[in-house]
Nucleic acid binder design. Structure first.
Length: 638
RNA sequence: GCUGCUGUAGCUCAGUCGGUAGAGCGCGUCCUUGGUAAGGACGAGGUCAUGGGUUCAAAUCCCAUCAGCAGCUCCA
């Protein structure tokens, strides 16, 4: 008999030699049915692994994230077999799971096209329906190398794998692949799947290596989850900020400036609303604001270290035989401002913000609408302080971050703390002190965070903020980075209490990151349906016939005078057509006016997304809308 | 930057075998004065991304360049 300790602490006495699948059956029939794999002493293993000694055991079901990953990985194997059946010359390289699915890299000279996906899926379904068992075979390193002789990819995988024993998985019919496992018990357990896309990818991600074909697939627990996922992708496509930006006339791009966004009047309304809000909050948090030049002498960038590390991605220009660089970051300019006069510890913490326009020459293939551009405005700030102030300053920034994000409806925030990397500058002591300060700040706010060991910048540890949009997609926005390098390089000092000169701590921080990118994210988050305070056009007066043009014009003037962004549609169309146009333009409020409204000094309000309307005395409408703008609510109901 | 795909009217797109270009929406004018998801008529609008080549003839075939899209690599 062996003792099996379950996650809840219960101990099960079992006859030795039973598999963990059978053990699951002893715990419950339902658990046995849902089981896809198990965990022995924390290590994931197949269900048919026999229990030979006392262990702690957890059963992995399809409902857990681990279980889903095993389903996807198994599905990748089935897809690989399907592809190898259709294209016998295909050589398998590597097939991991990724977020929402998996891919398989394949070396095959003949291109696999989207038209082929149906064929692959059909083959996969056939394999699934046969309910073939996944079988694990273990070989010594030596045997394994012999076993895959002639296959350079598998030999390479073996050489990169850890341990002396290597495992292969087959699921009948002669198909086999090197794999750590575990896998689901049989091919009918690979969930609901779909072959999604194909793209080129280098072997090992190395551009000098052969380009392979990467086939992406997705797999979910059941058909419903797959459908939901596909629907989410459809929804994301509809919300594409590049499409909506064009539709709503917010911004454009031109060949004359690839990667440089042109903001149109309506896009600028959004931009300015965000800026106004951003400034008001920063004022509240005792920030000062500066503005530094875009073009600065190249020597400055050699001093800051940017030239050395990033010159490939910088823009340069020569004027009067002097070399200049277009700034890729704001901090060197900020340092010059700091160095412009003497500073005392009494001024600290000194919080200096800058909405700085930076240019970075991104590779041509990476640009993407507003989300990845070559010119953008950072909502930057640099905080100069003494080491003892780091913690309270971080708390201050965190409060600011939360206040700003929540105004846009981003309340699901994920935080990561990155610590000292191998290659770094600064003493271990200062790293220790400052990393602890970052940790303490997060802990004092009772915020959960993930630690990325060794992932910090070479010049200091950092905290990153990620938000989830309404489709649960995450975006990194904010960052707080301590910098031990820049103050030294620039010789920044302050006079301390003891009348000696010391080097201040410099904290870089951005909250929205890039205005351009943030607006892109907002467009997708709201699907173009901006809340009232951000909407480029908040309301539009629609006339029923030209008989009420006078009233409509007076009404519009009055609403404008109240500070609303209000336009007027007196075009020679029926109201129905005007309603459609207003809906397409994502107008929050449509104000229909005819003789009835003119007589009673009222408006007939139709709210975006509804097909009902209500008559309302104009004064009441104004009061209700004002309240909504001030509270920044997304709810439009009056 | 790399691989593959794409580039036709303001927008979305069609254009067969190589024979000098089309639709819908939008825009303009006129008719219509209509109460909540498209009233009607007429009209303007194109160096078919750019440059070269093949051909009697190129939007169409070939090459190069530029830009975009998907992915890879990258993102101080």
């Amino acid at each position: 008999m062996v003792k099996v300790t379950l996650p809840d602490g219960k101990v099960l006495e079992l006859q030795d030699g039973l598999t963990i699948g059978q053990a699951a059956g002893k715990i419950g029939a339902r658990l046995a049915r849902d089981a896809v794999a198990g965990k022995i002493n924390g290590q994931a293993v197949d269900l048919n692994t026999p229990i030979k000694t006392d262990i702690s055991l957890a059963i992995i079901t399809a409902n857990s994230p681990d279980g889903l990953e095993i389903i996807r990985h198994s599905c990748a194997h089935v897809m690989a077999e399907a592809i190898c059946t259709i294209w016998p010359k295909a050589q398998l390289v590597y097939g991991p799971t990724v977020e929402d699915g998996f891919y398989y890299d394949i070396d095959l000279d003949e291109p696999i096209r989207p038209e082929d996906f149906g064929k692959i899926e059909k083959k996969m379904t056939e394999i699934a329906e046969k309910k073939l068992p996944f079988v694990r075979r273990e070989l010594s390193r030596e045997e394994a190398i012999k076993h895959v002789a002639g296959n350079k990819y598998k030999i390479d995988n073996i050489n990169r794998a850890q341990g002396d024993t290597l495992s292969f998985y087959s699921h009948g019919q002669g198909f086999e692949d090197l794999c750590r496992g575990p896998h689901v018990p049989s091919t009918d357990r690979i969930g609901s799947f779909k072959v999604m896309s194909v793209a080129g990818a280098y072997w090992h991600g190395d551009p000098t290596q052969k380009m392979l074909q990467r086939i992406y697939g997705t797999a979910w627990r059941d058909k419903k989850e797959l459908e939901e996922y596909l629907q989410m992708l459809e929804e994301a496509k509809k919300r594409d900020h590049r499409v909506i930006g064009k539709q709503l006339d917010l911004f454009s791009f031109h060949d004359e400036g690839p990667g440089f966004a042109f903001f149109h009047p309506k896009g600028m309304v959004i931009w300015n609303q965000i800026t106004d809000f951003w400034r008001s909050v920063h004022k509240k948090y005792d920030y000062q604001e500066i503005k530094t030049p875009i073009i600065l002498n190249q020597e400055l960038w050699k001093l800051s270290g940017h030239w050395e590390n990033y010159k490939e991605n910088m823009y340069f220009t020569t004027v009067d035989e002097v070399e200049y660089a277009i700034k890729p970051m704001n901090c060197p300019g900020g340092c010059l401002v700091y160095r412009n006069k003497q500073h005392s510890y009494r001024e600290f913490p000194m919080r200096v913000a800058e909405l700085g326009l930076v240019h970075r020459h991104e590779a041509s293939g990476v640009m993407h609408g507003l989300v990845r551009v070559r010119q953008f405005t950072q909502d930057d700030a640099h905080i100069f302080c003494v080491p003892e102030q780091i913690e309270s300053e971080i708390v201050n920034v965190i409060n600011l971050v939360f206040e700003i994000y929540s105004a846009f409806g981003f309340n699901d925030i994920h935080i990561e703390l990155s610590t000292k990397p191998e290659k770094h500058i600064g003493s271990d002591e200062i790293w220790e002190v400052s990393t602890t300060a970052l940790k303490n700040a997060l802990e004092s706010k009772k915020i959960e965070f993930q630690i990325n060991e060794g992932d910090g910048a070479f010049y200091g540890p950092k905290i990153d903020f990620h938000i989830s949009d309404c489709l649960k997609r995450t975006w990194q926005l904010g960052t707080i980075q301590l910098d031990f390098s820049m103050p030294q390089r620039f010789g920044l000092v302050y006079t301390d209490k003891d009348n000696t000169e010391k080097t201040p701590v410099m904290i870089h921080r951005a909250i929205l990151g890039s205005f351009e990118r943030f607006i892109g994210i907002l467009i997708e988050h709201y699907g173009g349906n901006f809340p009232l305070w951000l909407a480029p056009e908040q309301m539009r007066v629609l006339t029923i016939s030209e008989k009420t043009n006078d009233y409509a014009q007076k009404l519009r003037q009055m609403l404008k005078a109240e500070g609303f962004r209000c336009e007027l549609d007196m075009s020679n169309e029926k109201v129905g057509a005007k309603i459609i146009k207003a809906h397409n333009d994502r107008l929050p409020y449509m104000l229909v006016v005819g003789p009835k409204e003119a007589e009673t000094q009222s408006v007939n309000v139709r709210i975006r997304g509804t097909n009902e309307s209500t008559g309302l005395e104009t004064g009441r409408f104004i009061a209700a809308v004002k309240e909504k703008i001030v509270s920044k609510t997304q709810d439009l109901v009056i």
